[in-house]
Design a protein around this nucleic acid. Sequence first.
DNA 1: AGTTCTCTCA
Length: 704
Amino acid sequence: MAYNICSSSSSLSHDPHLFFSSFSPPLALQFALFQPTPRLKQSNHSITLKPSLQLTQVSSQIPVSERTHPPNPPNSQSLDEKANSSSKSYIWVNPKSPRASQLRRHSYNARYASLSKIAKSLDSCNPVEEDVFDILASLGDKIVEQDAVIVLNNMSNADTAAIALKHFQQRFELNKETILYNVTLKVFRKCRDLDRAEKLFDEMLERGVKPDNVTFSTIISCARLCSLPKKAIEWFEKMPSFGCKPDDVTYSVMIDAYGRAGNVDMSLSLYDRARTEKWRIDAATFSTLIRIYGTSGNFDGCLNLYEEMKALGVKPNLVVYNSLLDAMGRAKRTWQAKSIYREMMNNGFEPSWATYAALLRAYARARYGEDALNVYREMKEKGMELNVGLYNTILAMCADVGFTDEGVEIFEDMKNSENSQPDSWTFSSLITIYSCSGKVSEAEATLNGMLEAGFEPNIFVLTSLIQCYGKANRTDDVVRTFDRLLALGITPDERFCGCLLNVMTQTPKEDLDKLTICIDKANSKLGYVVNLLLDEESIEEGIFKKEARELFDAIGSDVRKAYCNCLIDLCVNLNLLEKACELLDLGLTLEIYTDIQSKSPIQWSLHLKSLSLGAALTALHVWMNDLYRVLESGEELPSLLGINTGHGKHKYSDKGLAGVFESHLKELNAPFHEAPDKVGWFLTTKVAAKSWLESRHSHDVVAA
DNA sequence: AGTTCTCTCA
């Protein structure tokens, strides 16, 4: 793509914020560093590690058969029975030998696997005591509290988890009841059920079980997962009254909760506090902070945090990279997203779904068409499913950059997907894709498909359709679509009116009245200005400009330039040069256009980059008059004169401004020629310009 | 037993 700068040589070393090329430790070492600190799993066979020769029994629970065969399904034989049947066959191993640790791990893994199978059956059984207790009975008699913790910790069904908890409470004297409550709270959090979590907390208090920091951080994170950050803060503030003093993990959660509640300052002050009090700040917290900065638009802050993190010796993990990629995507700093991704890959990370999602959004937002498609293809290759949002993002990009066939193909893929069926946004993008490429019947068919799928056409769809009909010169269909919009009770917005205005610039003179009526209905102020513009009777001087000014003052800054461009185009089409000049002048006064003319000692230039053809021609006309006045006053022209049209080759216009402008320059007999080394520039010399300006003026005088 | 990642441009 012409404007794809991603593969350009823009080097990071120019960027003061980033020095990614700094050395990295060897891969193997990094992997070692990324390993989570192994936690000693407490198991039933207490192992006293003293002299190296002490022998330890490692098979108190798991039968010998399980050391070589996979465990049986949990219901076929109770774990307890298995334990009994094996109780006579001990083997003794040096506890420090590799064999011992292998066996320990194996026996733990086997038990863990059985317990998590039980958790799975509990998840899918009826939420009645009878069924839940039945399944739990298969645990046998010799279960310990730790087993109960493992079962609950692996569950995700809040109803059956509550019953299971009750069972365990009835079953044995618990001495770590808080832990059991905490893992049950985790299940409720998985179900995003804050209500239930809060009720369970009350029950803890009633039973005299003391909540701890884990209890609070679980409830707090549950609140934030339920998008109730204010609740999270409430819970945090409750901690001291229960004798709990927030620790590093609590602060980590709260940094996130404050960030999501929109209280960025509070997040940052917690971070500051954590730093000054020399708490351990881990990668998770940094990724949270980066996300907070990213969503609040402080993109330099993201990069600074990243540097700070590395300076503190905290290794970035995948989530940190994902947050950074997401932030750079939002910031439209696509090249930085690219280098972060490269760094991540060089450090041996495997991209996750979130990585691809962030990359895809970054590329799509910046219209890096090929890059975005590559991410899409890579995800498909890896069997990752895109969600509706990602599909829509990439389809919107296809519409923007003119990837018609690719867009259609992706839409088909989406229809075949399991969980990502097209929504109204999808249809809207597809209609835009067809509209922009002038495929009227396909656009119409897609609209019908959208209706069949049960979606109402929205303003975006109808805006696209109007554009589509306008381009095809089907004025009556434009009007019909406009009436449809009104019939649906949709209020035309500024963008929609801008689109109608744009259609007018492509419509034959005899059809303009039909569209003026629409515009009048949509926005009377705009309608009035358009009517004044079209009015052939002379109006009082200054009225047109005054009304146009009021219009520009009344509309949003995002559409001002589009409106001004269209109005000037209309003037130029109708040969109303004077009104065109008035509008251009107004555009300059209101700073809708800036820096159209520039002067350096050796070259004067005309910059037409974001101007429509009509506006560009008007600006050229004004410039030529200005230059002639300079000549008249006896001043010297500089040695070079240049016109910059930009290379702006938009996918959907047959030619960019550069191409169209060139033929106009020829028509005017202007001596400007395309610069061979600078794309989008037309240059001439002082001498050529002078004689041309003079001949043109005498020609004008004769014509007048 | 607790903290991060799934926020779609009009």
